[in-house]
């Protein structure tokens, strides 16, 4: 079916879901205590699942609906649960140790990144004109915010969250630009992400065993002598 012919309530729901996606991503940058970050991240995954669900409803596609349920289960349930377990294992430090860039500066950077994302995605938006394509800048902004978290945070769990934000943004962009990526591809990607998270979780444990803390700043061997 033609994605441009989306009903008004569906468009409104889509906008809400996209807004929630962006808002939760920004909140991740704002907060510093890790349990809160994980709760926000859970909300982020649910928003992504909802976004796909709205798309499935608008297109009346059962397959896409199944994918939405899967996305919701993996990104809103499984991955946050794994992160919580990892956090419980790495020890008592529950707060992000002083970030590389302060919170206020990070939020300003986020604002700049969102503007950049909207500016970059102009050609894509002009291309389609449907509600789904209009939401593409949000997905790009989420990717950029995820990268920012990766660059500025020290705690390994924050790093994992940043990585997953990037992946969520890519997934969102995929669903918004195409009319469903296909079940097999989505399952494959989800499995990949799961594997990465498991590996990184082990890595976080090893970092803690070696250095006694979970600060990535301790890894300074990779350089020219």
């Amino acid at each position: 079916m033609d994605p441009a012919a989306m009903s008004p309530p569906a468009v409104a729901l889509l906008d809400v879901a996209a807004g929630a996606l962006l808002l939760t991503a920004v909140l991740v940058v704002w907060r510093r205590d890790l349990p809160t970050i994980l709760r926000i991240f859970t909300a982020h995954g649910i928003a992504l699942g909802a976004l796909v669900g709205v798309l499935a409803w608008a297109q009346r596609s059962v397959e896409l609906g199944l994918v939405a349920v899967g996305v919701l289960a993996v990104r809103g349930g499984l991955l946050p649960w794994l992160l919580r377990r990892a956090l419980a294992r790495v020890g008592p430090a529950r707060r992000e140790p002083r970030p590389v860039v302060g919170v206020a500066a990070s939020l300003l950077a986020v604002a700049a990144l969102v503007m950049l994302a909207f500016a970059v995605a102009v050609p894509v938006v002009e291309l389609g004109g449907s509600a789904a394509t209009r939401a593409v800048p949000v997905a790009v902004a989420v990717v950029l915010i995820g990268l920012l978290v990766l660059v500025t945070r020290r705690h390994t769990i924050s790093q994992l969250v940043g990585f997953l934000l990037v992946d969520n943004g890519i997934t969102a962009a995929g669903f918004l630009t195409t009319a469903g990526i296909g079940l097999v591809v989505e399952v494959g990607v989800a499995l990949d992400v799961l594997l990465v998270v498991l590996v990184l979780q082990v890595l976080a444990g090893r970092i803690r065993d070696t250095f006694g803390e979970v600060d990535l700043g301790e890894l300074r061997e990779l350089r020219d002598r």
Binding site: V151, G217, E221
Partner: peptide
Amino acid sequence: LATGSVHRYLGYGF
């Protein structure tokens, strides 16, 4: 340029 800081390397790419 290569000081060994992971954040700096990530930052270059970003």
